[in-house]
Design a protein around this nucleic acid. Structure first.
Ligand code: SF4
Ligand code: SF4
Lengths: 158, 158
DNA sequence: ATTAAAGATTACCACAATGGTATGCTTTAT
DNA sequence: ATAAAGCATACCATTGTGGTAATCTTTAAT
């Protein structure tokens, strides 16, 4: 399938909701209502988002959550990494470049490149892009300036 | 993690080996030797590759496997789909656009676009690109002509 | 025709990751 | 003081993955 985890998906959904209300804070309960997710699940999602620095939490009565950055600054890559850790397509494309058959395999270095490529693409897509379908069509043709804009994003590779 | 399955990875490794020997046929046993994989695992891998039309099998004595296409014609996307089925980042980005909370979520259409984007990237990368690290560096800068070349690839979206 | 080398098919099982749930603790506005 | 909220931990069922085994079918060589 090559699928992102459900929690990652939920993470984006929640961020979308937070983006909708702008500066207004949403309680975990609000989020649950708006998304149709169960409370315990919402808690789990919020924790990951807070840990990753994508949303800010205010505790106590009248507390709640709000976005930590503007929607166009939230990269899909960040969300994925928040829930699933560093992107690594293969076992060897992580820090420790090893797997069971590394000895017989000469491709480990190659995957590194493809891994980077994928990360650059995911870094290019922001919460804004996900939220407004209008930007979707753009994205295809927008692949042309991708290479130049990507330099500016300065991916932190691990 | 966002990881391809081990079997997919093994699939690429096997294809790499087949590419190395060119027109010569390799038996399942040969493949096992060269890759360090166990025979039963090799069988499973070969079956998927044959079913997907990526390698040709000749049965009986003196039989074996060989590539069905030239290395530069084998797209990584094909291999991934051979082992994991259609790429669908989220539950809703498949044919039946539904998930548990689809009712409360307005992002299903958006993911479709990102899904396409990812598929286009994976379709751009061929077995040749994976095999020769020299082409790796190219790939980054090569993102510029990507948009034009991608039109030619004519992705079959399901 | 026989034989043996090879691939094809089917079924099974152990393990790990996912994701969903429950319980109790801590902070803070009122 | 109190209640509203977020925080932390632990648990468990389900699923997908990946590894293994045993058996059947095809075909070149003799
Ligand atoms: S070393 Fe080869 S087989 Fe092992 S994870 Fe990397 S690419 Fe896959
Ligand atoms: S409908 Fe929304 S929540 Fe459901 S899979 Fe699609 S994006 Fe995710």
């Amino acid at each position: 399938m090559l699928r992102i985890s459900k929690l990652t998906d939920y993470g984006i959904v929640v961020l979308d909701q937070l983006a909708q209300v702008g500066a207004v804070k949403l309680s975990a309960d609000d989020v649950a209502q708006r998304t149709g997710l169960a409370m315990p699940t919402v808690r789990k999602v919020m924790k990951s988002l807070v840990d990753a620095g994508l949303v800010l939490a205010q505790r106590g009565a009248k507390g709640g959550y709000r976005l930590a950055k503007a929607p166009h600054q939230v990269r899909v890559l960040d969300v994925v990494e928040a829930f699933e850790g560093p992107v690594s397509l293969t076992e060897c494309s992580t820090e420790t470049h090893r797997c069971d058959i590394t000895a017989h395999c000469s491709l480990s270095s190659s995957w590194g490149g493809i891994n980077q490529l994928l990360m650059k693409v995911l870094a290019r897509v922001t919460l804004d892009d996900v939220r407004t379908p209008a930007l979707q069509d753009q994205l295809y043709r927008d692949l042309v300036p991708l290479s130049s804009r990507i330099q500016l994003l300065n991916i932190d590779d691990e």
